[in-house]
Each structure stands twice: as C-alpha cells, then as structure tokens.
Design a binder for these strands. Structure first.
Lengths: 250, 250
DNA sequence: CCTGCATTAAAGGTCTAATATTTAGTTGAC
DNA sequence: GTCAACTAAATATTAGACCTTTAATGCAGG
C-alpha cells in the first residue's frame, strides 16, 4: 500500500520546470494490479491453465484491499485472460482470450456508433475475398462438407427470407472458418451479425437477387472444392461488390 | 436484493422433465446490473454525454450493495461505454466506445495466442487493398497531404531500419484512415503494431526490398492522389502479396 | 465393495460501513 | 477582481463480516 501511495504521489508531483506534458493518467489501485498480473500472463510466466493465487493471498501479497484485488481480477476476466470459478478448489485460472471477446467488443462498437450499412458492407468486402482465397488454399474435407451443407440449406430455404438469410450467413461463416485464420474469423464473426440485421428486409432480397446469389454461391463453392484460390477470390469479390452496389442503389 | 435471490433460485430450480440442457450460466449480481445499464445505453434511452445516476442512487434503486454497483460500472467502463470521473460533479458519463477498446482487445488476442506471422500478414492483405480503394474514393486533401508526408518521411529514412519501418507503418495507417471506414481503421490499428513487431528485423528488410517498397508506395500514393480506386487497390494488393511471398520464402 | 448422504473446508460472492481522496463550486480577505 | 482557503459532493479504497457454492471427506447402509 505504501508503495502504491508513493506511485500516486510521484504522479502528482509538480512539474516545476517548463516541461509541456499531456494530461496525466492517474491509474487506480486495481488497474495497477491488473497490469502487473496481465504482464505475468502475456509475458509467459503464467501460462494457459495455471491457477492464480486466491483472492486472500493476493490481498496479502499486494497490500491492497480485497475489493481492489477483486476489481483487478474482474478486469482480467472481462478481457478474457482468466476464468474464475466459485467454490472449493475454485479460483482464477489463466486462459487464452477467445474470439468471443473480440466479437463482443466490436459488436458494441458497431451498435453504439450506429455504424452505417455501407461501412459494414465495405468491411465485409475487405475480408471475404481473402477468406475465400485462403479457404480454397487450406480447406479440409470437413470444411468443404460444411460449406456445401450450408449452401444446400440456403437453396432449400430460398422462398423463406429467414431461412435464406440464415443459410446465407452460415455459408459465409463456413467459408471464413475454412480459411483457418483466427483473425479473419474473429473480424467476420464480429460484423456478420450486424450485416445480417442490416440486410434483413424483404425489399433488399427480392427473388431475382436471391436466384443470383444462389448461383454465384454455387460457383464459389465449386472453386473452393477444386482448390482454386484465384477463382474463389475473384468470384467472391464480384459477389460482395455486386451486392454492395445493389444496396447502394436501393 | 430479494429480486436477485429469486432469479438465482429460478436458475437453479430442478428441470424435473427430461430436458437436455447445456451448462447453466449463473450471472452475478453485478453482471445483471451491467446488462441492464448496457441495454439502456445501446438501446438509446441514454445517449452520448448523459450522466448515469450516482453510485448511491444506483445502490438504492437497484437494491444491490455499493460494491456490486461499482463492479457493474467498472465493467461498463472497461467496455468503453462510460467514463467515470471522481470528485464533485463527478460520476459516470455515457460515451461511445472508441477504436482503442477494439485495439486493446485484439492486441491481447494476438499476443496471448502467439498468432503466426503469416496470419497477420494475411489479415493485413485482406484489409489494405480495400482500404486503399476507399481512400482513393473518399480522401480529402488533408488525407492526401498526410499520406504524402509519411511517404516522404519513409523515403528520407530508408537507410535507418527504425525510421524506415516507422514511416512504413505511418504511411499504411494514413491510407487506412483516409478510407474513412471506422471498422477498417480499428482492425488495421489492431494488427499494425503486431505486424510492425514481427517485421522489425534487418534480414526481413534488405536494401533492395526497401527500394522496391518505396517505389510501389509512390505509385499507390499517386493513384490515391489521382483518385483512381481500381488502380490503388490493384497496386496495394500486389504490394502486400509480394511482401507476403517474400516473407514466406525467408 | 460401492453407493449415497451428511459434514466440512476452501474458495469466491455479497453486504455494510467507515475513511480517504479528488474536484468543483463558494466565500472571504486583500 | 483575484487568489487562497474552505466546503460539499462525488468516487476510491479499506476493513471485516457473512453468504453461497463446490469439492473432498467420512460414514452408514446396502
């Protein structure tokens, strides 16, 4: 605790000289501790699956109060770096953050900024062609089966907007997953729900558009089956820009 | 509080029938409150700049303890949905989450999963061509000036690896900013530092590669100046895939 | 032997209440 | 009028108690 107070004091000490300095960040106790623990984790001294000391021990060794310790643990938990379990033999276990952490953050970003439809479609247009190319390059047989299955589901549901859009979403996500690139998967998962919501409208999916979508999806699926990266990318690019232009006109 | 206990009890009530159900999520008091407040915010009943009730009021109206209320506020703060200020007239003010929230999350994801270099470069390869295209389409004069400035800085620092890479990074980010697409900017900011770290190596940037990089950067800058989206995209695509292949060989 | 129940211990979850610190306004001396 | 001291209102932190959950343990009865 004394340690902490010193840090505080140092931060607030007057800059008596004429140094121009930006706004001073005053960290809270919990943040300081969280930073230390985070450093231990990403620095590799604590690895996946290890247990953190329990709250009371941390309280002692840090010199902070239990509330502050708990605040720090909550932060790490929200960051997806630890998972906390109640009960005997419970405690905080280190774990690698999953894609869901990214998805939550980006989803909040999108919905609270009311990101425009065009921005979403642009972002999708950036990710999907590359994802399709990588899928064609790296797909396994299970990946392919999944993609074909989702495509079939969409074709079967072409007359039902909900089923059609659901199948559409699933097909796109199956392709991105087949890229085996965690970052692209996370980004795409983050925006796909928003894209779904924003295109969930009868007028944005008239029958002739659906027909065309199904046709090109089929061709892309084939290109991935044949493991033709360039073709998969080219077709996917045409597909997303075509739909973007269609949206732009409506 | 009584309310909360009821929820708990309901969650644990025996499913007397033979329903198969997944692992039961047991929310904590603070989470429940956080969810309610988050809903108020993203649902639009509280908008950017509004003040939340202070902690004691929330304590009263929620029936929870102050610790739980504070836990909830901390969560929202970490999500970037509120900013809390100490002191008189302090409190929690609603704010839109910024890109930095995404950047932090994704950076943690990358570093704690030890994401492979190739994945990073693939993700960059997805984002940048589209960003270049959008930059050519939507750039302002200030955007262009900034891009040209960063390009000049890189050229000037071509013999100093640090300056070269720093200029490289800045140029790429300037282009992405000129796309005026918040999602692409956030994604690119998230990975650019990692890409920088991962390519910060003399052997990955021999003189002849630097020369070539500068040349094509110049052409891309020109395409953006001339507002030629297709050309900007084509060149950027060639640029990133060329570097990806160079990395793949080394 | 093994099943099932009660007990217990260890951990996190919650509540209360007090104290410390920060910050914006207010007042008063000059 | 201006600056310093004071005051009030808010969050930050601490302390300690009690509650709830969970797993291990032990024991009784099959």
């Amino acid at each position: 605790m004394a340690q902490y107070r010193e840090q505080m004091a140092a931060l607030k000490s007057p800059a008596s000289s004429s140094l121009k300095l930006g706004p001073v960040k005053i960290p809270r106790a919990a943040e300081v501790l969280a930073n230390q623990l985070r450093e231990e984790i990403v620095g590799g001294r604590l690895s996946d699956g290890d247990m953190l000391p329990n709250e009371r021990e941390l309280t002692e060794s840090s010199g902070l109060s239990r509330s502050s310790v708990r605040d720090a643990l909550r932060m790490l938990e929200l960051e997806g770096l630890i998972a906390t379990k109640q009960g005997r033999n419970g405690g905080s276990r280190v774990c690698k953050p999953g894609r869901d952490t990214i998805v939550k953050t980006v989803s909040l970003f999108i919905s609270s900024r009311r990101t425009r439809r065009v921005s979403l479609v642009e972002a999708r247009g950036a990710i999907e062609p590359t994802a399709a190319m990588l899928a064609a390059k790296h797909r396994t047989d299970e990946d392919l089966a999944r993609i074909q299955e989702k495509h079939a589901a969409m074709v079967a549901g072409i007359d039902d907007l909900d089923r059609f859009l659901r199948g559409n979403l699933d097909w796109h996500m199956a392709i991105v997953h087949a890229s085996h690139n965690d970052l692209l998967i996370a980004f795409m998962e983050s925006i796909s729900h928003a894209v779904y919501d924003v295109t969930n409208d009868e007028t944005l999916n008239p029958p002739e558009v659906r027909q065309q979508v199904v046709r090109i999806h089929g061709r892309i699926t084939d290109a991935i089956e044949k493991q033709d990266p360039a073709e998969a990318k080219r077709l996917m690019e045409r597909h997303v820009t075509a739909y973007a232009e269609f949206l732009g006109m409506s």
